[in-house]
Design a protein around this nucleic acid. Structure first.
Lengths: 121, 121
DNA sequence: CATATAGTTCAACGATGGTTGAAGTATATC
DNA sequence: GATATACTTCAACCATCGTTGAACTATATG
């Protein structure tokens, strides 16, 4: 069992930023699971799907297991825990309540021209 | 007032997938606003910041306004409405409750080998 | 009108990464 | 053991895009 490091927020966004990979992810959300099923629905080659699934798997978002009856078939599924964690993280990051008012540290309002004139002359 | 098309989910993920652009976005969440302030805090050139701000602006996530006293200064801010909309959209998309159980459309369980043998011979 | 400042746009470079076809692996069947 | 199947890995190509430096724009000041 390899322990994977927690990816950065930017890395997670990048993971989901590719349309093909996002489509695969969305299909898994709908319960579709084996490689060939995804290929049929998205009309993509298996090696390409495998490539994207690997990325999703390495990020911990997706799990794999082999069929008990025929181990050639592999079933992919969303990792519920990781998804919930990601969902919370994004919701916190994008929460509109986090938006603060302006904190002026530069600009004309900090040093009005009138003040300078009075002091300097 | 230019009407901007609603970007795809993948496009939005891509927008936030660059570490520099994400850092700029996060600073704006904290209320920092003019280009030079961002440059000071992230130690980046103004043209680079301008480039990323343009991308955020074109996606509708960020607003600009010129200073009333000195129009050379431009203040950037998060578009609250768009952020709230995005937040809702992502929360819906990544909702763990959306995950469905397996919907088997292929695999060995659909056509057991025993059935074929009986019928074929 | 000349100079300075805040910021944008442009052109070019270079790295990242998605896509493709072919070879390779693992498991099952005959 | 040979062949078929489900899938993975590899190498190479190519487009996208973040970065950089320089030129350009807009506004303000003297």
């Amino acid at each position: 069992m390899t322990k994977t490091k927690k990816p950065t927020l930017a890395a997670t966004f990048k993971l989901l930023s590719d349309p093909t990979r996002l489509a695969i992810f969305d299909l898994l959300m709908q319960g579709v699971q084996c490689n060939c099923e995804i290929g049929d629905q998205l009309d993509l080659e298996m090696n390409l799907i495998s490539h994207h699934l690997k990325a999703l798997r390495e990020a911990g978002l997706v799990n794999v297991e082999r069929d008990a009856l025929d181990a050639r078939w592999m079933y992919y599924s969303i990792n519920r825990e990781m998804l919930a964690e990601l969902n919370d993280q994004l919701a916190a990051f994008l929460d509109p309540h986090r938006i603060q008012p302006r904190l002026p540290t530069c600009g004309p309002r900090l040093v009005p021209a009138t003040d300078i004139r009075v002091r300097g002359n």
